[in-house]
């Protein structure tokens, strides 16, 4: 039997469509006999849980793993896009990166060999650090100078 704290955590997962079947079963057992957690469920649905209900079409690149069966009602939310419109920023950023990529593509006569496995990015907490921004800008500057006019 789960306690109130665990039940309320599961309720938040359910609101965001992230609860699996075994969690749903445990939650149902608790909710059947706990008015406090039922009250929390209502409160959450009208509070933070509303972020889960601002629905947008599914992401084109969404690839839900088959091992996760979601027991919930809400697809991925997108309130952030309403709050911080990225379109203009993304467009200008993409344009800049396009220049970088185009420059790089033009110098592929000297391909970079693949890095040894130890240098590959394996995960967030086990990887090399990216270059500092100053280095990045320097690289871009060098790239820009190599563009054939």
């Amino acid at each position: 039997m789960i306690d109130h704290e665990q039940a309320q955590e599961l309720l938040t997962l359910r609101a965001f469509g992230e609860m699996d079947e075994s969690e749903a079963n445990r939650l149902a057992l608790h909710l059947g006999s706990c008015a406090d957690c039922r009250r929390f469920d209502q409160e959450f649905a009208q509070g933070i849980g509303r972020l889960a209900k601002l629905e947008d079409p599914p992401r084109a690149d969404a690839t839900p793993p088959p091992s996760v069966r979601r027991v919930g009602v809400h697809p991925a939310p997108a309130w952030r896009r309403r709050l911080a419109p990225l379109a203009a920023c993304a467009a200008s950023f993409a344009a800049g990166i396009c220049v970088t990529l185009a420059i790089h593509s033009g110098s592929e006569s000297t391909p970079t060999p693949p890095p040894p496995p130890s240098q590959r990015v394996e995960g967030t907490f086990a990887r090399e650090s990216p270059p500092p921004l100053a280095t990045t800008l320097g690289v871009l500057t060098v790239m820009a100078r190599s563009v054939p006019r």
Binding site: E9, L10, L13, E18, A52, P64, V68, R80, E122
Partner: peptide, 28 residues
């Protein structure tokens, strides 16, 4: 989860964490 619209399973994969750990972080 809420801004980049990733699933918790994707987040677990990206952060190199177990899914139950990520669920706990999100729920808390």
């Amino acid at each position: 989860k809420t801004e980049a619209e990733l699933s918790l399973a994707e987040i677990a994969e990206d952060l190199g964490l177990a899914l139950p750990t990520v669920k706990t972080h999100f729920a808390r």
